[in-house]
């Protein structure tokens, strides 16, 4: 099996029923799910934005809540995609054995993983999109340029879903995910310019931080929300897509090794 474990994913187009399955489950629980995904980040954004922001001078030339809004959109996108690719995918793979049931049909593991990847990104689009909508309703979006954040949310979701599927493939149990959050997601949240400009960080840390997937998303979302064209837009976008593609290949190889042995 070793040789074929590392073959490139062959997603085809038949992953759609896997996506549909997850969507049907979500639809049953849509309201509490959306409320939960919406309430938490908005409380942080408004609390920190107006509370802490009231004590601060302008950050990068804008009010703190305006600065924080873009970071909140991409951070909640990251969270939604990550939770789906870790906890939900793991429960379908390992606990409910949903994937085993699907593998007895003409679908392959590559179809299952592609369905999960696109589903996690879709769910993050719902969460991130809902936050973006509230941000716009609060008058924190400067121009229609902010609409470009919608596809950006999806691409960011793909990147974090692919990363999450790697962790899912390696996890012996749910507890394992704490390492990922503590050692990767939380530091990234603080280093990617969500809460404060990265110029405040030491040069070495700034360089490393520049490589983080969330940083690319922040670099694109913040100017778009403030009505400006981002610098190096294509480079940031390419970086997010490259992370998504590379991580998905790794996740596919690891999951094949785990399930098709």
């Amino acid at each position: 099996m070793r040789g074929s474990c590392f073959a490139l994913p062959r997603p085809g187009l038949r992953w759609l029923p896997v996506w549909q399955r997850n969507f049907l489950v979500w639809r049953k629980l849509a309201f509490p799910s959306l409320l939960g995904n919406l309430a938490d980040p908005l409380i942080y954004m408004l609390g920190l934005g107006y509370g802490l922001g009231g004590l601060l001078p302008a950050v990068q030339g804008v009010g703190y809540v305006q600065f924080l809004a873009a970071g909140t959109v991409v951070a909640s996108t990251m969270n939604a995609a990550t939770f789906e690719a870790l906890y939900s995918a793991f429960s379908r793979m390992h606990v409910q054995k949903t994937w085993d049931a699907i593998l007895n049909t003409p679908l392959s593991l590559d179809h299952v993983l592609t369905g999960e990847l696109v589903w996690a990104a879709s769910k993050s689009l719902l969460s991130g999109g809902a936050i973006l909508l509230v941000v716009a309703l609060l008058g924190l979006a400067a121009s229609p340029l902010a609409l470009w954040i919608v596809p950006l949310i999806f691409v960011t979701g793909l990147a974090f879903a692919a990363l999450g599927l790697i962790v899912c493939a390696l996890a012996p149990s749910y507890e394992f995910f704490m390492y990922y959050f503590t050692l990767f997601i939380t530091p990234m949240l603080l280093l990617s310019g969500v809460f404060f400009p990265t110029e405040r960080l030491p040069a070495v840390v700034q360089t490393i931080a520049g490589w983080l997937p969330l940083a690319h998303a922040v670099q694109l979302a913040r100017p778009l929300l403030l009505g400006q064209l981002p610098d190096d837009a294509l480079a940031h976008l390419a970086a997010l897509l490259a992370i998504a593609g590379a991580c998905f290949c790794i996740a596919t190889a690891l999951t094949r090794r785990r399930l098709l042995k």
């Binding site: 029923p17 399955r21 489950v25 049909t105």
Partner: peptide
Amino acid sequence: DPDFTCSENLLVYGRY
């Protein structure tokens, strides 16, 4: 699929 009814289980499985 524990989240589905009996007929939903059959529908979703048939789609695969």
